[in-house]
C-alpha cells in the first residue's frame, strides 16, 4: 500500500487484509513485550495541523510499538501554526528523511494533495481531513464490530448483513463518511439518522438508507448504533434550535438504549458529550465498545503503518 488516504478506494480484500494484520498486532499487545522490531530505522512523522491529542497519541503508540522513530509536529507552538504552507512543511519533512507522514488537516483533501504533490516521497496516512475522511477511525470501528460479532473467528471475514445505524452530524463528519464506504464495502447495511439540516443535500450516490427519526431506527433493532459527537456551535448556524431539542430527538438516552437488543453494540468515536448525544448508562454499559475502540485503534494503526512501510521499499 503506497498511501492510506480514504476508505472509499479500499477494496474488500485490502480492507480485510488490513483488519487481519491488526488482529496479529492485537495479539502482540497481549504479550509481555509489546514491541516489534519491524520498522526499526524508519521515520514516521505525525503532522497535526489540527489539535487531536487522542488520535496523535494513538498513532505515536502504534509507531513506537513497531520500533519506528517518531517525530511529532503539532499546530500549537510550531511553524505550522504560523501560516507556513503545506508545501514548505512537506519539503522540510522530505529533507529530514520521513518515510511516512501521518497527517491531520482541517482542509478536506489535504492528504491527497500532499500524496500527489511530488513535494515528498513518503507514504501518506490520512489521520482525518476536514469533513472528508478519517480512514483509520472507520477501520478501527470495523475491527471492533468484527471482533464483537465473530470473536476469535474474525480473521478473513467481512461484516456481511450486519446492520449499522449512524446517528448525528453526518454533514460535517469525516468519521461518518469513512464508515459509510468501509462498512458497505465489507457487506454491512448502513442506515443514517440525522436532522435534515445535518445531512448532505444529495445522498443519491451513497450506499445507505436515510431517516430522520431515531425511534424508528431503534425499533428496527440494528446490530450496532454509532453515535457521533455533536458540536454545539452548530446551533448558532441554525442547524438545530438548541441542545435540549437535539438531545430529545437524536440522543441515545436511557429509554432508547433500553429498547435496543441486549447484544446491540453501542459505539462512539469519542470524545463523548455525555447527556447530549449519549447517556452515561449507554456509554458505560457492557454493550458499549467505546474503550475497545480506543484500544483497537492502536492495533489498526500499527497495521496501517506496517502495510505502508513494509510494502514500499521492496522487502
Amino acid at each position: 500500500m503506497r498511501h492510506l488516504l480514504s476508505t472509499r478506494d479500499l477494496s474488500r480484500d485490502e480492507a480485510i487484509e488490513l483488519l487481519d494484520i491488526a488482529e496479529d498486532m492485537a495479539d502482540v499487545q497481549l504479550r509481555e513485550v509489546k514491541k516489534l522490531p519491524t520498522l526499526r530505522g524508519r521515520t514516521v512523522v505525525n503532522l497535526f495541523f489540527e489539535d487531536s491529542t487522542r488520535t496523535k497519541v494513538s498513532f505515536e503508540a502504534a509507531a513506537k510499538r513497531l520500533s519506528a522513530d517518531v517525530i511529532s509536529f503539532s499546530a500549537k507552538g510550531s511553524s505550522v501554526s504560523k501560516g507556513e504552507s503545506l508545501k514548505d512543511t512537506a519539503q522540510t519533512l522530505a529533507a529530514i528523511g520521513a518515510d511516512a507522514v501521518v497527517i491531520r488537516h482541517g482542509s478536506s483533501g489535504a492528504p491527497l494533495v500532499l500524496a500527489q504533490s511530488g513535494w515528498i516521497d513518503a507514504g501518506v496516512l490520512n489521520a482525518g481531513d476536514g469533513t472528508h475522511e478519517h480512514p483509520t477511525q472507520a477501520l478501527l470501528d470495523a475491527f471492533t464490530l468484527r471482533r464483537r460479532i465473530h470473536g476469535s473467528a474474525s480473521r478473513g471475514r467481512g461484516l456481511d448483513g450486519v446492520r449499522v445505524t449512524i446517528v448525528g452530524d453526518i454533514l460535517h463528519s469525516r468519521v461518518a463518511r469513512s464508515n459509510v464506504w468501509l462498512l458497505s464495502t465489507l457487506g454491512a447495511e448502513v442506515n443514517l439518522v440525522a436532522p435534515p439540516t445535518l445531512l448532505p443535500v444529495d445522498l443519491a450516490n451513497w450506499p445507505v438508507s436515510v431517516g430522520y427519526d431515531l425511534d424508528d431506527a431503534i425499533d428496527a433493532q440494528p446490530d450496532a448504533v454509532m453515535m457521533l459527537r455533536i458540536q454545539l456551535e452548530r446551533m448558532h448556524a441554525a442547524f438545530f434550535p438548541n441542545s435540549r431539542e437535539y438531545s430529545r430527538a437524536w440522543g441515545l438516552d436511557d429509554e432508547r438504549f433500553a429498547r435496543l437488543r441486549a447484544d446491540s453494540i453501542v459505539m462512539h468515536p469519542g470524545p463523548m458529550n455525555r447527556g447530549l448525544e449519549i447517556s452515561s448508562r449507554a456509554a458505560d454499559s457492557p454493550q458499549s465498545s467505546v474503550l475497545e475502540q480506543v484500544a483497537n485503534g492502536v492495533s489498526v494503526r500499527m497495521a496501517a503503518l506496517y502495510l505502508l512501510l513494509s510494502g514500499e521499499k521492496g522487502e
Binding site: S108, G109, D129, G130, T131, H132, E133, V201, D202, L203
Partner: peptide
C-alpha cells in the same frame, strides 16, 4: 450537490 457531499467540501 452529490459531489460536494462526498468530497466533504
Amino acid at each position: 450537490g452529490a459531489l460536494s457531499g462526498e468530497l466533504g467540501l
